[in-house]
Structures are given as C-alpha cells and as structure tokens.
C-alpha cells in the first residue's frame, strides 16, 4: 500500500527559472504534513503541479495509486484532491450559504440534476459546516463583504463541503488575527481527525506548523532541503541556515 499522494521527482521550470527540481513528497492517508520554505522556494508551484494547474516537465504524480499528472484541474478535484488558494478565493457575489451549496460534490450529475434544486441534506451540511467555522449567523451575507479572515474560513469550509480525501492548504493562517489562529488550528486538526481529511499545508507561521504537522518537508531554491518530524526540522542545520535563521 503506497502513499495517498505520491510525488516522484517532479520538476517544473518557467522559461529559464527552475521553480521545482527533482522533488519527491509522500503523504500518507490521515496525516497532516507541512510544507515550508523561504519565499520563492517553489511551494506554491508544487501545489499547482499537484492539482493540475500546469503541466509538469519531469517526474510523476500519483493520487490513490492513480497517475494524475496528465489530468486537468476539475478532473483531479473530482477525484477528491482539493486546494485552497494563497489569495483567498471565494465566490464574492454570492451569499455564504450559496458558496457552500455550490461546493457540494458534483460528481456524475446528469443534466436533470444540474437543473434541480439542492437537496435537504446538502442544505443541512452547509449549515453544520458554517457553524463549524463560526460563520453561521453571517450565512446570508454576501461573501465578498466579509473580512479577509472570515473569507479564509469560508474557503476552508467550502473545501470541507466538497468532502475531499486530501486537502492542500496554501497558507491558511496568513492575514488572520493572531487570536483567531488557535481556533483555526483547532479546526484544521478536527477536520483531520473527525472528517478524516488528509492535509498538506504550506505555512510560514512556525508555531502553527510545528504544532500542527506530524511531518514537514522543507524546500529551498526549488529543491527539497530536508524532511522529518517537526523536532528534527527545527534542529536541522540546513533548514536553519536557509530559512529559520539562527535563534
């Protein structure tokens, strides 16, 4: 039984700029894995490669033992591999509830179902998850009018609504009020434990990622620098030199 996500020696260059070179990452089912590294080290490029946003130059990517590096974004999403965006993306002209309802999985819907109303179960699930992230009383507000932090929470709950097996989170705590970060971390852990969603998280906040992740990969200059448990990463000489800095 191989890993849920298996990234094998992936490389990606934009013109002469090599964003990723020979990167291999494995995420086991049920894990929370961190991805850290300085700005421009290729973390988001790796995410984009995994979800099929752009073709990769070399290497292979497997999800649930199926090869996905030739598939497009919607097909990969429908397999149960979702991502959230660094610049939070929600449907700004719609209410929170509507954002949630349209995020329900759409696999195998025929034309008749596409034209049908939402099911009661979907509406209840939307309410539960909005309650889970603490946006229930704002559910009828236009999502674009929410604060940045609330939009991040909404985007996270939209991803949960889709019921993915693996969720890639691109800086979930960036721009969030420090007092709310603990609450968000708690929700990430509960999504992992209660909903059984495997997480791969890009994060710059070291306190968050060291507490959240069971394993961490560190990138620098587009290459994999180190991999290990948070305690090992924190002590790793190369990581300290490249990223953490002497403390």
């Amino acid at each position: 039984m191989s890993a849920l996500l298996d990234v094998r020696a992936v490389g990606k260059a934009f013109g002469g700029v090599v964003a990723n070179r020979g990167i291999s990452v494995q995420v086991e089912e049920g894990e929370i894995v961190g991805l850290i590294g300085p700005n421009g080290s290729g973390k988001t490029t790796l995410f984009n490669s995994i979800v099929g946003h752009h073709p990769i130059d070399e290497g292979e990517i497997y999800f649930d033992n199926g090869r996905i590096d030739k598939l497009g974004v919607p097909e990969i999403a429908r397999l149960g591999l979702l991502r959230t965006f660094q610049q939070t993306r929600i449907y700004g002209g719609m209410t929170c509830v509507q954002n949630m309802l349209i995020s329900a999985p759409q696999q195998g819907l025929g034309v008749a179902a596409m034209l049908a109303p939402h099911t009661r179960a979907e509406e209840e699930r939307a309410g539960e998850l909005l309650d889970f992230v603490g946006l229930y009383e704002k559910r009828h507000l236009i999502a674009g009018d929410l604060s940045f932090g609330q939009q991040k929470l909404l985007e996270f709950s939209m991803a949960l609504m889709n019921g993915p097996r693996l969720l890639l989170l691109d800086e979930p705590t960036a721009g969030i009020n420090p007092t709310l970060i603990n609450g968000l971390m708690d929700r990430l852990q509960r999504a992992n434990a209660e909903f059984g969603i495997t997480l791969l998280v890009i994060e710059h906040n070291m306190r968050v990622i060291m507490n959240l992740a069971q394993r961490i990969y560190c990138l620098a200059h587009g290459e994999l620098l180190a991999e290990g448990a948070p305690s090992e990463i924190r002590e790793d000489r190369r990581v300290i030199d490249a990223y953490l800095g002497a403390t």
């Binding site: 979800v51 497009g72 974004v73 919607p74 999403a77 429908r78 979702l82 991502r83 965006f85 993306r89 929600i90 449907y91 700004g92 002209g93 719609m94 349209i102 995020s103 999985p105 759409q106 696999q107 819907l109 596409m114 939209m158 991803a159 889709n162």
Partner: peptide, 13 residues
C-alpha cells in the same frame, strides 16, 4: 461569474 478558476478547482463541470 464570480471566479471560474475557483469553480474548476472545486471540481464544478
């Protein structure tokens, strides 16, 4: 209308 790329990323056909 609001964000077609996001809709694709969410698996919407």
């Amino acid at each position: 209308r609001d964000d077609e790329q996001k809709a694709e990323a969410m698996g919407l056909p």
